[in-house]
């Protein structure tokens, strides 16, 4: 079973998990994800690949603790194993020299957007990274982002980075300031949909990395279907990247909330068992 090399809390509620997965680290590319199951009774959940080390043969994911599976993952330590760490899944993001690209990340997406920003930078694009955090103590990977960004803009509600403006408005300000060729947004559905709305009037191509509920992650079940441009697509095999201006966001919100009550029940049952 795949072995955990490192698990650490980056900021409250957000954790990093580095797992030995030599084959995945050899193959993975920015924008792809892995399916992880925390233990034998766990759920299969998709997590975006945040980084990899081909020399050490490891793959890193960053996740936010929300439900039972992520709470279980957050308790793992180095040397522990996970029964499933499968991938790399999904189509890799199309990166390259596109001119100027604005990469937006929030919560777990701050980590997910990093390999994308890096790939755009390496291909010759000018990269503006916009990070959305609630407070300065929730900001992580600043050094990693600074290393790949031509400009790093941090929007923090506590104003400690000098900017409390909400991210969609911030993105719009950049579009007014200079010519932007592409916007990429990774994070919660709300962040992605509001960024897509912010760029719609200007018609700047906006790529979002969708995060619907998945089961197998290989195209077999269709749990992750989303409507894009009026057509049903499977996020796991047709995505996860889609044109943010074509996504049916209301449908995605509803489908992501499908198991809300069950998720609470599951978490309560697990907490009672784990912490009697």
């Amino acid at each position: 079973m795949p072995r955990v090399v490192r698990r650490e809390r980056l900021v409250p509620n957000i954790h990093l998990l580095e797992v030995e997965a030599p084959e995945i680290s050899r193959k993975c590319r920015p924008g792809q994800f892995v399916v992880v199951m925390p233990d034998a009774r766990g759920e299969r959940i998709p997590l975006t690949i945040a980084d990899w080390d081909r020399g050490r043969g490891t793959v890193t994911v960053v996740f936010m603790t929300v439900g039972t599976s992520t709470r279980k993952l957050a308790l793992l330590g180095s040397g522990d194993t996970v029964p499933i760490f499968a991938g790399p899944l999904g189509r890799p993001s199309e990166t390259g020299n596109v001119g100027t690209v604005v990469c937006v990340g929030g919560c777990y997406g701050i980590a997910s957007v990093h390999p994308l920003a890096r790939a755009y930078k390496e291909a010759g694009s000018r990269v503006v990274v916009v990070v959305d955090v609630k407070a300065d103590y929730l900001f992580y990977w600043r050094d990693k982002l600074e290393a790949v960004a031509d400009e790093l803009i941090v929007s923090s509600r506590d104003g400690l980075y000098g900017d409390t403006d909400y991210v969609p408005r911030r993105v719009r300000a950049i579009l007014e300031r200079e010519k932007v060729d592409r916007v990429v947004a990774v994070g919660c559905t709300y962040l992605m949909s509001s960024v897509a709305e912010a760029t719609r009037p200007a018609g700047v191509k906006t790529v979002v990395s969708l995060n619907p509920v998945m089961v197998d992650g290989t195209g077999m079940c269709g749990a992750c279907r989303v409507t894009v441009g009026g057509e049903t697509r499977f996020a796991c095999v047709d995505g996860p990247d889609f044109d943010g201006h074509l996504v049916d966001w209301d449908e995605l919100y509803a489908r992501r909330k499908a198991y809300f009550d069950d998720e609470i029940r599951s978490l309560c049952a697990w907490e009672e068992e784990r912490f009697p």
Binding site: G42, R44, V215, Y259, D262, E263, R265, A269
Partner: peptide, 15 residues
């Protein structure tokens, strides 16, 4: 596969 018939002992739900 995910044993949803034994939820919440198994974590995967089904409607």
């Amino acid at each position: 596969l995910m044993r949803a018939y034994d939820f919440p002992r198994y974590d995967t739900p089904v409607w």
